[in-house]
Design a protein around this nucleic acid. Structure first.
Lengths: 344, 344
DNA sequence: TTGTAAGCGTTATCAG
DNA sequence: CTGATAACGCTTACAA
């Protein structure tokens, strides 16, 4: 099984290689390589022969070999908690599209807030020699050991910070908490209570701080409704709703808490926008279509993802530059009626 | 710059290689390789030394080299229209988790229903030598040329079929259309109209066929409301809602059409469940929380994704077996009140 | 059980 | 402008 001459057979594993192309085009392998890379030092005649051979063979360069040889894989890793969450799926969507436009391919991994899975994902991405990583760190990550494990691979933190020097793109979470609280205040509310699935997670904690600050400033008592998960949160909110001695304003800190709060209210037949008020976190398609159209705090997911990707590319380009960029995006209040707006 | 002896320096590109590990462990490279692969023909003493060296160096095997040498990359590609769509994001989520459990890593690509992007994605996945692909083909794909371009790489179609022999996991779309229509019939409706963003896309077309069949069987006149996109569909539905000479039943064929229909109804202050009825397609968290809790046709996204992955693994295992598996999942009616249920 | 050597497909280097 | 050659890091015969 040697030299099948100029027949259309190919590399040992069925797929044609540069050598096959070279043979058919009657040139050397390196010339094919040059042509493929778009080097202009390839004569027109030769270019044409190579193009023909490539087409005839349906040749696809082996990126593994390329990556092995060249050192870069044109691959980035995206590590998110999960992707069944509008915020993250929007981020993935935009990041994938943009990465592709720049010639990069995305490896997507989700850690479900499990630091061990996350660690294994980091290792995986290193083994595949991705050129960079966009990461939303799992709650409970040991940042220092993670940093150590990450070594020199460019990383951009999205949604949650990592170590100090690590470039990050975050929401102005405190401000988000503030504007929502202030808005409730502007509606004349005194009893404003926060609803959240956790007081520990970075983003929630930050939003909570914003809320608390404004409450304190106004001489009001902050109050938080929590539970271990959004399912447990429903009865919690229900209990509050039933026991409150007067109507109050509810402020959600996450899309899950929004679900729980709306769920509880629905169960009790409570309508948001007149006596009771509500502001949800994270906007979504159906928010305007709920019985009482939901006022929400909107995160600019696409801008965030885009910024993260650009930061990553910068980081990948300047290996020594140690770009220290921390980008913060403002949240936007989507005014609808659940907060009490549009009811003159 | 030669032979830095037994110092802790490493491969040419900063990262340690098997050779570095071998040197420290004072064994040959192949022994390290064997150890890493879990071969039992490695003595305990040597194993220990290697383990130590690996840990000391933070060695991560280069999957590029592995793939180049061994022929398989432990990588699969997932190509979806987009991931900002609960159905697909659920699929991605479960597929990624399961793939990981089997030691595979996912490359995620989205084509936005653009066959050209899709073609380029296919090429990309081939260049990265993924072991298999899960694909939801773009509307308008030239199946035959796609098949040709795909060559021998294992592919499983999800949500939409490809060529006849290509394993696929689909929803029983016609049945889905049928059960929804029949349910409307059981509520005594005569005027049942379909709402969809397209009559061309495979899934919608199929669901429409189911609907039409049942309508014909019942001696009723099928009727469809369409528009180029879900935004355009809103005024379309609104017009219908206003001009109808009597209340009717609306049947959505997709989550986007559901949004449009609910939007139109909301705009008109029309409530679903008493005189007007509605069944949405694709279930979602907030469906029970709308003013009139939405009855929906639910697709078992996780089961579908799981089945697709399993089929793919089968396909990857048996290169010659030409497994011809076509799995169909039944849709499930999530009875709530928008269809008229729960109103005795 | 262990080590040596060849080769996976590319590209960079270096002569021609 | 072009072609041979040597790596890139790993695994798999084949020897020892």
């Amino acid at each position: 099984m040697k030299a099948t001459s100029n027949s259309r057979v190919s590399g040992s594993r069925g797929r044609p290689t540069v050598l096959d192309v070279a043979r058919i085009a009657e040139v050397g392998a390196s010339t094919v390589s040059r042509y493929l890379r778009g080097s202009k030092s390839v004569s027109a005649a030769v270019s044409e022969r190579i193009a023909f051979a490539v087409r005839q063979l349906g040749y696809q360069p082996n990126e593994l070999a390329r990556g092995l040889r060249g050192g870069s894989t044109n691959t980035i890793g995206i590590v998110f908690p999960q992707v069944t969450n509008l915020f993250f799926s929007n981020c993935v969507q935009i990041a994938e599209e943009e990465a592709r436009k720049s010639g990069y391919t995305v490896m997507l991994l989700t850690h479900q807030e499990n630091p061990e899975i996350q660690a294994s994902h980091l290792a995986t991405l290193q083994r595949y020699r991705v050129d960079g990583i966009i990461l939303t760190a799992a709650e409970g990550t040991d940042i220092e050991s993670f940093r150590l494990q990450a070594g020199n691979i460019p990383i951009v933190a999205l949604d949650r910070p990592l170590w100090k020097e690590c470039p990050s793109v975050l929401l102005k979470n405190r401000d988000a908490g503030k504007i929502a609280t202030q808005h409730m205040l502007s509606h004349g509310h005194k009893d404003i209570v926060c609803v959240t699935t956790s007081q520990e997670m970075y983003t929630f904690k930050e939003r909570l701080i914003g809320y608390t600050q404004i409450m304190r400033q106004a001489g009001l008592q902050p109050r938080v409704l929590t539970a271990v998960d959004y399912q447990q949160l429903i009865p919690e909110v229900t209990r509050f709703l039933k026991s409150a001695d007067r109507p109050a304003a509810l402020l959600s800190l996450s899309n899950m808490a929004t679900f729980s709060a709306v769920s509880a209210a629905k169960g009790l037949g409570i309508y948001f926008g007149k006596t009771w008020s509500f502001i949800g976190f994270d906007d979504f398609d159906f928010a305007p279509l709920l019985e009482s159209p939901l006022t929400t705090v909107r995160q600019p997911a696409k801008e965030i993802a885009l910024a993260a990707l650009q930061l990553l590319f910068q980081q990948m380009a300047g290996p020594n530059s140690k770009v220290q960029a921390h980008i913060r995006f403002a949240a936007e209040l989507m005014l609808r009626s659940s907060c009490g707006c549009l009811f003159p």
